[in-house]
Write a protein that binds this DNA or RNA. Structure first.
Length: 914
DNA sequence: GAGCACTGC
C-alpha cells in the first residue's frame, strides 16, 4: 500500500516536472510575460462581461410588485408586532404594581407620622392616671405599633442606603467622578486609600446584617456567613423620576393614540431643529440615548419633510435582523400603511420591500451587500446608520464607503446615530460633522462595587443572588456570565443552595439563557414571574443587546465575557474570557433601569472599573478574519486597501493575510486586480475559501453536494444536541452519521437524511440534532443555490462519488492542510504548526496521513474542526501554483523536505504559472 | 478525549 502510494506520487512529480520543463523549453521569459499579460487582460474582459450580465439580469428582476407583501414574511412581521403589543399590555400591570408600591410607602410614612403625633398629643393632653383601662391599653397598642413601624424602617434603611446623585455635569461625563491623581495610579496602598474615600461617602453592608439577624437570625445565617460587601459608588442617572412611573402608567391606561405616543417621545421636541440641521449639513451625527425614539421617528420626519420625493428612499441600517423587522413594522403601523409597501425592510432570506418603498430598514450587512449592485446608493436620498457605536464589521466598512460617496453625491444626506461615548470620534472621522444631541428616557440605576476583588465570581454571583433575594424588594435579577458551562455551574449551585434554605426564603426561579439553548427553553424567560416569586436569569452576552427582558430590577455583573480573537499571523481563532469594557459594563447596568429604578452590583472594585477596564470594546474589524470583507472591497473597485479610510484600521497583517489568501485562491491576479473568479466569488456571502469551493464544484460536477456541505458548515457548530443525562445516546446517534472520508461527508449525510425525512422535526429530535440549525442550513442552502445560478453554475449531482466532492473541497481549502508527522502529531502544511484533530471529529481515532480542516480553533489545544481525509496528489491538481511536488512527499520518505510551506517570494514566483 | 460569546451576509 505504502509502496503503491509512493509510486503514484512519483508519477505525479514526474508529470509535474515534465510540464514545467517543457514550458521552459518552449518559451523565453518575454514570451512567458506576454502570455501572462494576454491571459490577464482576457480574464479582466471576461470579468467585466460577467458583471455586465449580472447588472442586466438584476435590472430585469427589480420590477417588484407591491402585492408580494402578502407573503409569509409579512405575516411573520405582523405576528411580531402583535406580540410587541401584547408585551406592552403585560407591562401595564407591572407598572401599576410599582406605582402602588410607591404609593403605599408614601402612605405608610404619613401614617407613621400621624400615629406619632397622635401619641404625643395624647400623652400631652391626658395624664396616665386619668385614663381608663381601655384607654391605657389603646395607648400602649399605639406605642407598640409605632415602635414596630420604626424598627421596620430602621431595618430597611440599612438595606436602602442613602442614595446620592452625582452632580449633573456635562453630558457623557458621568464617570468623571473618579478623580484620582495620575501619580496615585500605581501602588496598591493608594488604591486602598481611594477605595476608602469612596466608601466613606456611602457604605452599607449588603444584606443588612443586623436587621436581618433581628428579623430571624437562624434563617439567614447560612447566607450571611459569606456575604459580600458592596460599596455604592455612583448612580447612573436616569431622566425619569419615581413619580414618572405613576404618570406613565396613568397615560398608558388611557391607551395613548399613536399620535399621542409619537408626541410623548423625547425626540418630538427636537423635530424642527433636527430637520433644519439635516437640511443645512450633509453629514450629521445623532447622539441619542435609548428610548429617545430616534430609530422610528427620524425617517418619518424626513419623509414628511419631503426627502422621499423624486422616487428616492430613506434607508436605515440596524445591526440585528429582529430590530430591522420590528422597527419597520412599528413605523408602518404609525404611518397607517401596509408593511412592505411604503415602509419595508430587507434582511437576509427576506426582502419585504417593493418599488413603492420609501422608508427601508435593513441590516447593516444587507446594505453592505447592496453596494455591489448599487455602489453610489443612487436610489437613496438619506442613509441612516443606526447603533453605530456597536461597531460591527459591516458598519465599520460602511463608514469608509459612505464617507467616500458623500464627496461626489452632494444630494445624499448621511446620519450616523450613536450612543454618547463615540459621538465625538464619529464627528472627527466625518470631517467634524456637527453632533445633534437627543435625550433619552430611562430610570436611574444605583451602582455598587465590591469592596475587595472576588476570586471566584461564580460563587460570588450565587451569594449575591441570595443576598438580594432575602434582603431586597421583589424584582427580577439578571446575571451576566460568559458561557454555557458557567451558566450551568451557577444554576446547579444556586438550585442546591436555595433548596437547602427550603421555605425559609421565597420562591426563586432560576432560568438560563444563551444563544444555543433551544428556543422553547429560551422562551421561558419571558413568562411572567408568579406572584411573590423572583426570577433569576443567568445569561450570556445575549442579554446585553440582543434580548431585552422586562421587569429586571437587579443586575449582577462579574465583568467578563467571551470574545473571539483572530490571530492573523497564525490564522487561528481563539475564544477567550476577557474583562469587559466600560461601555459594556454601562450597557449591562442600563438593563436594570428599563421599567423602574434599578440596582447594578458589579463584582469588581470601583478601582478596577476606573483603571483596569478599557473604555470601549475592540471593534470587530480588528479581531476577525477579513477574507470576505477584503474580497467585497476589491469587488467594489477599491484598489488600495492599505490606505482605505477606516475609522479604526484593522491590523496590517490581517489585510496582508487576506490579500495573500485571495491571491492564492486565484481571486486576485499578480497585479492585485480582481479576476473573473474573484468577481464570482464575491457574490457569495461566505469566506473566500468556501466561495472557491462552491465555484470549483462546477469542474467536479458535484455542485449539489458541495452546496449542502457549504450550508452545513455555515451553521455554527451547535448542530448536535447533547444533554448531559443522555450523553451516551446522543453520542451513538451522532456516530451513526459518520461517513467514510470525514466530517464534511458526515455533514452531507446528516442533511440528506433530514431531507429524506421530509425535513422532519421529529427526525431531528430522535437523532439529537438541533432542528433550528437544520432549518438554518436549509435557508442558507436555498440562498446559495440561487447565487450559484446567478454566477452561471449548473447544478449537478454525483451521489456515489466522494472523491470528486472531496477534491472540490480541497480546491477551496488547500490552505488548510495538515499532515501526520513521525511523532504521531499533525503539522499544518503552511506554518508547520502542531495541531490536533478535534475529539468530536469522525476521524479522531483514524488519523489519516493527510487531512483538510475547515477551521482551526484554540481552546485547550490547537484543534482542527471538521476534518476530511485527502490525498496529497490532489493538492497538485487543484493548487499547482501553491504546492510543489517535493513538499508533498510522504513523510516516511527520507527525502522529506526541511521547509514546508512557502515564502512570499516563492508564492509570487509560482503565480507566473497561472 | 473535548466542551463553541454574539451578530450578520
Amino acid at each position: 500500500m505504502g509502496k503503491h502510494k509512493e509510486k503514484s506520487h512519483k508519477k505525479d512529480r514526474d508529470r509535474h516536472g515534465e510540464g514545467s520543463s517543457k514550458r521552459k523549453r518552449d518559451s523565453s521569459p518575454e514570451d512567458e510575460y506576454a502570455k501572462m499579460e494576454k491571459e490577464r487582460l482576457r480574464d479582466l474582459k471576461e470579468r467585466d462581461e460577467f458583471a455586465e450580465r449580472l447588472k442586466q439580469r438584476d435590472q430585469d428582476k427589480t420590477k417588484k410588485i407591491a402585492d408580494k407583501t402578502n407573503t409569509k414574511s409579512y405575516e411573520e412581521a405582523a405576528k411580531r408586532l402583535k406580540m410587541e403589543a401584547l408585551d406592552r399590555d403585560s407591562m401595564l400591570p407591572k407598572l401599576r404594581i410599582e406605582s402602588r408600591r410607591q404609593y403605599l410607602a408614601k402612605r405608610k410614612e404619613e401614617k407613621v407620622d400621624e400615629l406619632e403625633a397622635d401619641i404625643r398629643d395624647d400623652e400631652y393632653l391626658f395624664d396616665e392616671g386619668s385614663l381608663t383601662k381601655r384607654e391605657r391599653e389603646e395607648r400602649e397598642y399605639k406605642k407598640r405599633v409605632l415602635h414596630l413601624a420604626k424598627e421596620h424602617d430602621k431595618a430597611r434603611e440599612l438595606v436602602n442606603i442613602q442614595r446620592y446623585h452625582i452632580p449633573e455635569g456635562k453630558k457623557g461625563e458621568e464617570e468623571k467622578y473618579v478623580e484620582v491623581d495620575e501619580r496615585e495610579k500605581v501602588p496598591h496602598s493608594e488604591q486602598r486609600k481611594w477605595e476608602e474615600e469612596q466608601m466613606s461617602s456611602a457604605q452599607f453592608r449588603f444584606g443588612a446584617k443586623d436587621a436581618a439577624k433581628k428579623r430571624s437570625q437562624e434563617d439567614y445565617d447560612m447566607i450571611l456567613d459569606d456575604e459580600i460587601e458592596f460599596i455604592q459608588a455612583l448612580q447612573k442617572p436616569g431622566n425619569l423620576k419615581k413619580d414618572d412611573i405613576e404618570e406613565i402608567s396613568e397615560t398608558m391606561k388611557k391607551k395613548m393614540s399613536i399620535e399621542d405616543t409619537k408626541k410623548s417621545l423625547p425626540i418630538y421636541a427636537f423635530r424642527d431643529d433636527l430637520i433644519k440641521a439635516i437640511k443645512e449639513h450633509q453629514v450629521l451625527i445623532i447622539e441619542g440615548e435609548t428610548g429617545s425614539g430616534k430609530t422610528t421617528q427620524i425617517p418619518q420626519y424626513l419623509h414628511e419633510a419631503g426627502f422621499t420625493e423624486d422616487k428616492k428612499k430613506i434607508g436605515c441600517t440596524q445591526p440585528r435582523r429582529v430590530a430591522a423587522m420590528s422597527v419597520a413594522a412599528r413605523v408602518a403601523q404609525e404611518m397607517g400603511v401596509k408593511l412592505g409597501n411604503e415602509v419595508g425592510y430587507s434582511i437576509r432570506f427576506e426582502d419585504c420591500t417593493s418599488e413603492r418603498t420609501m422608508i427601508k430598514y435593513m441590516t447593516d450587512g444587507t446594505l453592505h451587500r447592496e453596494f455591489l449592485s448599487e455602489p453610489d446608493l443612487q436610489s437613496y436620498s438619506v442613509m441612516i446608520i443606526d447603533e453605530a457605536h456597536e461597531r460591527t464589521l459591516h458598519t465599520d466598512i460602511l463608514f469608509g464607503l459612505v464617507k467616500d460617496i458623500v464627496r461626489f453625491r452632494t444630494d445624499l444626506k448621511l446620519l450616523i446615530s450613536s450612543a454618547t461615548l463615540d459621538a465625538e470620534k464619529f464627528s472627527g472621522f466625518f470631517d467634524d460633522a456637527p453632533i445633534f444631541r437627543i435625550p433619552g428616557r430611562r430610570f436611574p440605576v444605583d451602582i455598587y462595587y465590591t469592596k475587595a476583588p472576588e476570586a471566584d465570581y461564580i460563587d460570588a454571583c450565587v451569594v449575591s443572588v441570595l443576598q438580594i433575594h432575602v434582603s431586597q424588594p421583589l424584582g427580577d435579577i439578571l446575571v451576566f456570565l460568559t458561557g454555557q458551562d458557567e451558566i450551568e455551574a451557577c444554576q446547579e449551585l444556586l438550585t442546591e443552595r436555595s433548596r437547602r434554605l427550603g421555605n425559609k426564603i421565597k420562591e426563586l426561579l432560576i432560568l438560563p439563557v444563551y444563544a444555543n439553548l433551544p428556543s422553547e427553553m429560551q422562551a421561558k424567560i419571558f413568562e411572567p414571574t408568579p406572584p411573590g416569586a423572583r426570577k433569576v436569569i443567568l445569561a450570556t452576552n445575549i442579554a446585553e443587546t440582543s434580548l431585552t427582558i422586562d421587569n429586571i430590577i437587579y443586575v449582577i455583573d462579574p465583568g467578563f465575557c467571551k470574545q473571539n480573537n483572530f490571530n492573523s499571523k497564525t490564522g487561528m481563532e481563539s475564544l477567550v474570557v476577557v474583562p469587559i469594557s466600560k461601555a459594556s459594563a454601562n450597557q449591562r447596568a442600563g438593563r436594570a433601569g428599563r421599567v423602574a429604578a434599578g440596582k447594578c452590583f458589579r463584582l469588581y472594585t470601583a478601582w478596577a472599573y476606573a483603571h483596569e477596564l478599557e473604555e470601549c470594546t475592540v471593534p470587530e474589524i480588528q479581531r476577525i478574519n477579513l477574507g470576505n470583507a477584503v474580497l467585497m472591497l476589491k469587488a467594489l473597485g477599491i484598489r488600495d486597501l492599505m490606505n482605505f479610510d477606516f475609522l479604526d484600521p484593522p491590523p496590517h497583517e490581517s489585510l496582508v493575510l487576506a490579500l495573500e489568501q485571495l491571491y492564492a485562491l486565484g481571486a486576485l491576479n499578480h497585479e492585485g486586480e480582481l479576476t473573473k473568479l474573484g468577481r464570482r466569488m464575491a457574490e457569495f456571502p461566505v469566506d473566500p475559501m468556501m466561495g472557491k469551493m462552491l465555484l470549483a464544484s462546477e469542474k467536479y460536477k458535484c455542485s449539489e453536494e458541495i452546496l449542502t456541505i457549504a450550508a452545513m458548515l455555515s451553521v455554527n457548530s451547535s448542530l448536535f444536541y447533547r444533554p448531559k443525562d443522555k450523553a451516551i445516546h446522543a453520542d451513538t446517534a451522532r456516530k451513526n452519521f459518520n461517513a467514510q472520508g470525514g466530517d464534511h461527508l458526515t455533514l452531507l449525510n446528516v442533511y440528506n437524511e433530514w431531507a429524506q425525512s421530509d425535513y422532519s422535526t421529529q427526525w431531528c429530535f430522535e437523532n439529537y440534532i438541533q432542528h433550528r440549525s437544520m432549518k438554518r442550513a436549509r435557508d442558507v442552502r436555498d440562498q446559495l443555490s440561487g447565487l450559484m445560478q446567478r454566477v452561471e453554475i449548473k447544478m449537478e449531482s454525483s451521489p456515489s462519488e466522494t472523491i470528486n466532492v472531496r477534491k472540490a473541497i480541497t480546491a477551496g481549502y488547500f490552505y488548510h492542510i495538515a499532515r501526520l508527522g513521525k511523532g504521531g502529531q499533525y503539522k499544518t502544511a503552511k506554518h508547520n504548526q502542531t495541531v490536533t484533530i478535534h475529539p468530536n471529529s469522525s476521524l479522531f481515532e483514524e488519523l489519516p496521513r493527510w487531512v483538510l480542516y475547515h477551521e482551526l480553533v484554540v481552546t485547550t489545544k490547537e484543534f482542527m474542526r471538521q476534518v476530511t481525509e485527502i490525498e496529497s496528489k490532489w493538492l497538485l491538481e487543484v493548487a499547482p501554483h501553491y504546492y510543489q511536488a517535493r513538499e508533498l512527499e510522504d513523510s516516511t520518505n527520507k527525502k522529506m523536505p526541511k521547509v514546508v510551506g512557502k515564502s512570499k517570494s516563492q508564492l509570487a514566483g509560482a503565480a507566473g504559472m497561472l
